[in-house]
């Protein structure tokens, strides 16, 4: 499929996107550009506006204010061209009950513009990739939730879309299937597919996303790499001290410069919380010096990096206040 977009930094572009459902303001003035070939993680609490943004992007909602384009094609005016670039896995994927996996994929492949020979070639490849080849003639009603989700991903991948939009794709999957999904997403990135990935499982977003956007109450709050978000949110830094046995002597750590608190998590683990702008190296040195001075036996000292979960929680809590 040939397409023409003026700027690869704006393969997907949302400008001043606003959507209202009755009295409920679902999206307010959202502007966002996604580069060609990047994986964009889209996170936010329930009802924040993730799914509404995605539905506008894939053309399921066409009544909105603002500008949306995919590959240079403006929505909703050039929806048909934009749709040829698109693969979509909805949050709750559903198929007509009479279909087998094979029938469903044949139909969706053809509707996406593949000819018969391409469909016959692609279906086994995609099913093999997702471990569904053996059950291709099973009725969809006989599948588990996880397998149904895999069929959903199969229909989205079949025509090798330039843009893959995944709305909460890992819900209901077992750990191995989640690992498989993430591996497939990484492989697609290597092929140059642009991927938008919304999820509540923040560690999964953290694992695969090049950039992350946080949305809350219909507004984009922050966009950046995980490092950008860590820097912008200035989350507190934490040093973990692993003890051989429980001791009360570590309470004195709170007197060290830049230490704002000491939490005894378990008899063998203490967390030392530092100020957001603390010099980590200096703090670790001071903590180690204190421990050596008091001759406290330890198994290790680690600096804990804030996870996306922590950043996200800090942010949402801050918003609630």
């Amino acid at each position: 499929m040939e397409f023409n977009h003026p700027n690869p930094d704006k393969f997907v572009s949302l400008k001043n996107l606003t959507k209202r459902f009755g009295n409920f303001q679902a999206l307010s003035d959202i502007s966002l550009d996604i580069r060609e070939g990047e994986i964009f993680g889209y996170i936010g609490p329930n009802g924040a506006g993730k799914t509404t943004t995605i539905k506008i992007l894939v053309g399921l909602i066409s009544n909105f204010q603002g500008e949306v384009s995919i590959g240079g094609y403006q929505l909703p005016q050039r929806k048909e061209e934009a749709h040829k670039l698109l693969g979509y896995l909805p949050q709750n994927v559903a198929f007509q009950e009479w279909r087998t996996i094979n029938q469903a994929l044949r139909t969706f492949g053809k509707l996406s513009g593949l000819i018969d020979t391409q469909v016959e070639e692609k279906i086994p490849q995609v099913l093999e990739l997702l471990g569904l080849l053996e059950v291709r003639h099973k009725k969809i009603t006989q599948l588990s939730g996880g397998m149904n989700q895999k069929v959903g991903l199969a229909q989205a991948l079949l025509h090798e879309p330039k843009l893959l939009v995944l709305d909460e794709p890992l819900g209901g999957l077992d750990p191995y299937s989640r690992y498989q999904f993430k591996e497939i997403i990484r492989k697609l990135r290597q092929k140059g597919t642009t991927i938008i990935f919304s999820s509540h499982i923040l560690s999964d977003v953290q694992d695969v996303a090049d950039r992350i956007g946080i949305i809350n109450r219909g507004r984009i709050k922050k966009i950046g790499t995980l490092d950008d978000l860590k820097a912008r949110f200035k989350t507190k830094k934490t040093v973990e001290v692993l003890l051989v046995s429980k001791t009360e002597k570590l309470n004195g750590l709170s007197k060290i410069k830049n230490v704002i608190g000491v939490d005894q998590l378990s008899p063998s683990k203490v967390l030392v919380n530092l100020e957001a702008n603390a010099d980590e190296a200096q703090a670790v040195f001071d903590i180690a010096e204190y421990i050596v001075k008091l001759k406290i036996p330890i198994r290790g000292i680690n600096v804990l990096e804030p996870s996306l979960d922590q950043i996200y929680l800090n942010y949402v809590q801050e918003e609630e206040k």
Binding site: E81, H83, V93, A94, F95, L111
Partner: peptide
């Protein structure tokens, strides 16, 4: 049923 189960989503995002 198909409307409520969102079966049409996968059709409507295709060029038809």
């Amino acid at each position: 049923n198909e409307k409520n189960r969102r079966v049409y989503d996968l059709f409507l995002i295709r060029p038809l």
